[in-house]
Computed example of a mutant assay.
Amino acid sequence: MKRVLLFLGTNLAIIVVASITLSLLGVGSFLDETGTGLDLQALLIFCFVFGMAGSFISLLLSKKIAKWTMKVQIIDKPRNSDEEWLFKTIERQADNAGIGMPEVGVFQAQQANAFATGASRNKALVAVSTGMLQRFNKDEIEAVLGHEVGHVANGDMITLALIQGVVNTFVMFLARVVGFAVDRIVLRNEQGLGIGYFITTIAAEIVLAILASTIVFWFSRRREFRADEAGARLGTRQGMIGALQRLKAETQVPNQLPESMQAFGITGGKKKGIKALFMTHPPLEDRIAALQNMSD
């Protein structure tokens, strides 16, 4: 599954560009009637509208950007028995999960990985790497595909967009409050908004967006357990455990997904210490243990 870092990067770019543009146009200052304070209610509404817009624009672009970034080859009509099996497996799982048939794709990568993305449960994309198709057995691949279909069926991308929209709202709001405070208290600008407000707001927005992304990463880690359960149901539990064990054995192989796409994959980069807060996936050991303890 490869989605969060790409989603966050696109979202942050949209928010920063929108903020700079609006500031240059003189929109979004939200001073009160006296010109000496902020109209917090109007500011919050403004930030909510643009925060949600940035998140959902990222969501709408996610599938196209994933195809372009990973050079995904879409299987419209299977050309051989392997593609036929892949197509039919996803078709059956989508039907069992109650979602529309996703687009099916393959991308060139030696590392074993797969991902799902898309703005709708009925118009998603599920893609798998050539490395996984070459080295994993069919039970393991079937479970991994079920994991990805589970992400789609669980509405993870929509939920992610909503969470990111709320995060955007408060990031934009707090950044402007900080910018106003610096402009008034530190730079002692007593009327209107000075250059200090705009510079501080943009800088604070970037810093707060990075810090607030830990909330999104936390959600990303939690959703992996649910998707693993879906993989066990739509495939087999032993197949899902076997796939994760094989992925664990291959952790010495460098992750060949671009960093912006690693969050969408079945496995992501491993971090320690404070960097663990920015992990998009829980440790493979924890995921395997959860499946082993899953009730039948």
Rank of each mutant, 00 (worst) to 15 (best):
A232L: 02
R223D: 10
I241E: 02
I90V: 15
M132C: 03
I15G: 07
A230C: 05
V17H: 08
I241M: 09
L43T: 11
W68I: 06
G165A: 02
K64T: 06
F225A: 08
S29Y: 13
L38R: 15
A66H: 11
I158W: 04
M101F: 14
D183G: 11
L162V: 14
F264I: 01
G268I: 05
D76C: 04
I15C: 12
N189M: 01
A290D: 13
Q110V: 09
F87T: 13
N122M: 06
G235H: 01
V144E: 00
D183I: 12
F219E: 02
K270D: 12
I65G: 02
F136C: 00
F56K: 09
G155L: 01
T34Y: 04
V16H: 03
T267G: 04
D156C: 02
T21R: 09
S58I: 08
G231S: 06
I215P: 01
G118H: 08
F48V: 14
T201K: 09
G35K: 01
D32P: 03
S220Q: 01
T200S: 15
T130C: 00
Q134R: 11
T130H: 00
S81Y: 10
S23L: 11
V253E: 00
D39R: 12
R79K: 15
G105F: 10
S23E: 09
F219T: 00
F50W: 14
V49F: 13
F30V: 03
A263N: 11
F173T: 14
A263F: 07
V104P: 07
G242I: 05
G54E: 09
T201G: 09
M1C: 10
I195T: 14
K123R: 14
R233F: 08
V128N: 00
E148A: 03
E229N: 04
N189G: 11
K63G: 01
D296A: 15
K2T: 12
A175I: 10
G131C: 02
R79Q: 15
G165R: 02
V253Y: 00
Q256R: 00
D183Y: 06
G150K: 08
K272F: 10
G231I: 05
F56Y: 15
F50N: 12
D32W: 03
L174C: 13
A114Y: 12
E285L: 07
